[in-house]
Design a protein around this nucleic acid. Structure first.
Lengths: 235, 235
DNA sequence: CGTAACCTTGATTAAGATCAATTCTCGTGG
DNA sequence: CCACGAGAATTGATCTTAATCAAGGTTACG
């Protein structure tokens, strides 16, 4: 059995037998930065879980620009919607991935959970479906916040909110005094996720640094004034 | 039994006995435009379904401005997230509504599905949870599109996309030749939903009208050039 | 070292927010 | 039935933010 499978929220708390069954249908894929996972409109195979690394979900606009909608980290799932949207019908051909996805870190690992097989499991186990409900609800909440931020806030506020969020992620899991955040991605991806231009992001980070609130070194950010950062993001 | 209950997707296809049970726990509320349903941070009672009319979900930013995140029409549900997010724990006191909600049409009717009672039903019936999964997945998709639009498109494109979407809703349900769309809401709400200012929306609608693409009369919009509208929204 | 990708900084421009002033609409009471 | 007033919508002028265009500077890696 894959050693990471239990750490994926929707599969936690399942009995061994079921976990074995799921382990039997999944496929692991190793990727490097820039490796594609699926393309927009490609036939739907199933959904994914990130085991290691970082994955971006993005769309390409008419003028060829890339726009990142989500960034998915370890033990989070993505692309479940096509599977869940239509659990009754089995007309598999019509299902397509609704966006593109790509690894944005080297040695990223993802797990494919094939749609057909998983649908059967889902229909027979209420626990999984309850877990998935809870997972989707959390995602909804996260997206609500994202929408809120995109409409309510200017680039500086959005950037501060992002850094703050990363900071909290780190301090939550490791109780070390280390306030150093690693972005794990380049300026281009971060700018796209924050809905701004690379140049604007660069200037914004520069401003936050010259104000003594953060210290930027390449892809690392050291938070110096947590209070001020929080103040900016929610003013 | 409430006559509308079967038209709510998550309750469709359930057997009569279960429907009776659900009917027994829900509460109907009649509202007029401007009537509040719940406030941000208010203790969570349960989720809602719109039976008639229109409801907005919104946040108030620090500077006192209102920002509409969703607009919910008949037979759609809202505020399920707090219930689903934490199905195991019963620590009800910590649950709060994550935003405000208000009726934006006269004689709106909503149905409250109380959290405690419904949780029990959900745990015992796999059909409901599968339906809810499918409902949430659709919502996710819709939100994805909304995020996409907010980041990818300028106000004109967003406005065109909105009108196009309303147009399709109408032509899907009634096969009449009537291309007249009713907004069912004032400029302020629409502007907020589209993430722009009232004045900008007004100018944008004016421009689309003077270009002969639509015809605006108060809250009604007549689509004159469907092709061009579609062209604008996706250029 | 050399080159390409990445990042930063500067100057200019465009979209849309904001402020301000009218006009329109509609409900109410004389 | 008309006049009035308030809220809603439009129109105009100005200002701000951030996108775009352009040029250097840094870093990583063969």
């Amino acid at each position: 059995m894959n050693k990471y499978i239990k750490r994926i929220p929707i599969f936690s708390d399942l009995d061994e037998e079921l976990l074995e069954k799921i382990s039997g249908i999944v496929r692991i894929k190793s990727l490097n930065e820039g490796d594609n996972i699926f393309f927009d409109s490609e036939p739907y195979r199933g959904f994914y879980a990130v085991l290691k690394g970082l994955v971006k979900i993005y769309k390409i606009s008419r003028d060829g620009k890339e726009h990142i909608i989500h960034i998915i980290g370890p033990f989070n799932t993505f692309a479940e919607a096509p599977l869940l949207e239509n659990l009754e019908n089995i007309i598999e051909e019509d299902f397509r991935y609704p966006a593109n996805s790509m690894a944005i870190e080297d040695s990223t690992e993802v797990m494919l959970i094939p749609a057909m097989e998983f649908r059967e499991i889902l229909r027979n186990d209420i626990n999984i479906s309850l877990h998935m409900l809870s997972g989707l609800a959390k995602r909804l909440k996260h997206m609500n916040r994202h929408i809120e931020e995109l409409t309510l806030k200017d680039v500086t506020k959005r950037t501060a909110a992002f850094i703050l969020n990363e900071y909290r992620k780190i301090t939550n899991q490791s109780s070390s005094e280390d306030k150093l955040i690693s972005l794990h991605m380049n300026r281009s991806d971060l700018a796209s996720y924050l809905g701004t231009a690379i140049e604007t992001l660069s200037r914004t980070l520069g401003k936050l640094q010259s104000d003594g609130i953060i210290e930027v070194t390449g892809r690392n950010i050291l938070v110096k004034e947590l209070e001020k950062l929080s103040e900016i993001s929610s003013s």
